[in-house]
Design a protein around this nucleic acid. Structure first.
Lengths: 204, 204
DNA sequence: TAATATACATACACGCATGTATGTTGTCAA
DNA sequence: TTGACAACATACATGCGTGTATGTATATTA
């Protein structure tokens, strides 16, 4: 049953897609390779051919899906802009409103924010995850530093604190939404919350 | 080997205490009743005598430990205060600084925020959890409404939005701290973030 | 103080997830 | 075109966690 290279790549992708669904549905820990195989309409043999185990699937998902998500934000910030703070606000606001309309992205974030814990076998994944996060953190802090130097934000402001405020509020809001989408109206409240936060940045 | 009622209650507590450690250490899903039994220095037989299964232990922990945590906040708000907004800020700030010094509380919050997912067998637990959370949410919203009526906050402010802002920032900050206590200095930044948020409430 | 129920410990049976070993078929390179 | 290997499917062995059944000693109660 040897397949062509293209077919093989397709099944690999099918496995990853299935893993997203199964993981976000049942939780990473409770997900079985058999579950993923069925969802992808292959056998466990196929999975073990492409991946060593569940952790490797999880890491692959993180690389292919989470990283680009952050990447897009960072790339947006590299572009020179007349009002850098307004630009950042716009980007963050857009991400929230888009999230409201993209169930696929919701599934992904649910997976990485609510459906996995990094104990035991996933300790290495957590280390990689943290390293990435710290780099993102630094990028934001550098961005705020630039904004302060350009006089867009008061010199009294602490870029470190601004970064933490943005990340915390953003993270918290997304989690609250994913946990209880019935109560939280992301479409309306996301932009309003961002407006509130960035106003406090400017008035600092 | 029948024990006295007091002894029985002691082992029950030992099991719950052990569960906190094991759950927050290995993650709820990967934790075994055998793990908990060893930590508590009993056998699985003792656990099955006191609890039906792992979910019941988890629920018991949630009732006995998470609820009082929230309760303390809500009770603090019921007391009449000259500056209700300042009072709320003080309470939130204190909780954060206390969290910095209480590893036991850190373990508990880690457990409920990072080390569990509510898929499958834990679906019922999630429902209860959400119900409690919504009541907390309503209590905060009512509090802000009162603050607005008392002219402590601008009438233009939306109590719903203020509640969401506070919960999101608080939740986000706690999670960021628990995930990476090396990077996040809760002792310093917690109070500063709260000051920032509540300042924006007042300037709204 | 005898009977009974309590508070466990021990032993057992079962299913299930994992990892690996092996089989099979088609592809691609020479 | 033919061998070798890639891309799986299938089969098997193993261990582990669960739940339950049973044993047992001691409080409690009547």
């Amino acid at each position: 049953m040897r397949r062509t290279k293209e077919e093989a790549e397709n099944t690999r992708q099918a496995i990853l897609d299935a893993a997203v669904t199964v993981f976000s549905d049942r939780g990473v820990a409770k997900s079985t390779l058999e579950n993923i195989a069925r969802e992808a309409k292959v056998t466990r043999g196929a999975i073990y051919w492409h991946f060593a185990n569940k952790v490797e699937i999880f890491d692959a998902l993180h690389d292919h899906l989470h990283s680009p998500f952050i990447q897009r934000i960072l790339e947006g910030l590299e572009v020179e802009h007349a009002d850098p703070v307004g630009q950042l606000q716009k980007i963050c606001t857009e991400i929230l409103t888009e999230l409201h309309e993209e169930p696929q992205t919701q599934k992904l974030l649910t997976l990485f924010l609510l459906k996995c814990d990094y104990s035991g076998e996933f300790a290495d994944s957590k280390a990689k995850f943290l390293a990435k996060k710290r780099r993102t953190y630094d990028a934001f802090a550098a961005y705020f530093t630039k904004a302060i130097e350009g006089n867009y934000i008061s010199a009294k402001a602490d870029p470190h604190l601004l970064t933490l405020a943005l990340q915390s509020l953003f993270h918290g809001l997304v989690v609250e939404f994913l946990e209880d989408p019935v109560t939280i109206n992301l479409q309306q409240d996301g932009p309003r919350l961002m407006a509130m936060l960035f106003a406090s940045f400017r008035h600092y």
